[in-house]
Design a protein around this nucleic acid. Structure first.
Lengths: 118, 118
DNA sequence: TGTTTATTTGCGTCATTATGCAAACATCTT
DNA sequence: AAGATGTTTGCATAATGACGCAAATAAACA
């Protein structure tokens, strides 16, 4: 039983490397973007760029870029309706992604030395 | 019963704002730092700065700074033994933190519209 | 069609950050 | 003490990123 069953033997941390990409965290590394993200997350319905721009004191063009950055990183989804673009947070998807990271981190070369040794 | 029970009525996404800090993601936003982090995560035992520096082709002084940055962000723990500094990844702590984010994101203003409506 | 409204893009500027080198510092060894 | 080894720090430079403004694009409306 020298093998850990909850992760592969060779390259057990591959999943982690795949999940952990700089682009994702880069998109989360700016204070204004984080405010935008949490603000959008609080709202039950998608927000337009103009609505989102109310939360921080930067130019709307900057907000537009920030939102696009987060969309490209998979942190937001956008839908164009007429001349407005509605942004929203795919919370369930992101939550699952975070948990996948947590799992990968835990099972990475067996964090816990098998407490269940029945 | 217009209230959602799995989260507070006022500011139900406060937890998210607390958990989601730019410093953490800033520390994760650099490719070399991510390589360092995943490399350290793969190793069962703490690594010295010199050992960690093998994974990427930058100067050791740069690695030293990167490791310190991640330590300050809570991504690494360090222990000095003699003239060497051993870095390791607090995987369980980080995994719990990621799951806390996932939970906060999910419960933020109730992602799922109360399936249990007795 | 011309005008208003919403968003994006080009561009110059300023701030931040990553990097390498050399020097400093700390610790171990002889 | 003197030298060797491991790590950090000061500093200059280059790369990256955030920002605002103005112009461009897109869509609604008169």
């Amino acid at each position: 039983m020298t093998q850990i069953n909850k992760s592969k033997a060779v390259g057990c941390c591959e999943e982690l490397s795949v999940l952990v990409q700089p682009e994702l965290f880069k998109a989360l590394s700016d204070p204004n973007r984080l405010v935008l993200l949490t603000t959008l997350s609080e709202r039950m319905e998608p927000s337009t760029v103009s609505e989102a721009a109310e939360c921080c004191s930067v130019d709307m063009s900057v907000v537009s870029r920030h939102l696009a950055t987060m969309r490209n990183a998979g942190l937001l989804i956008s839908e164009k309706r007429g001349r407005e673009v509605y942004y929203s947070v795919p919370r369930q998807v992101l939550a699952d992604q975070l948990r996948a990271m947590a799992d990968a981190l835990e099972s990475c070369c067996s964090t816990e030395e098998e407490s269940e040794d029945d």
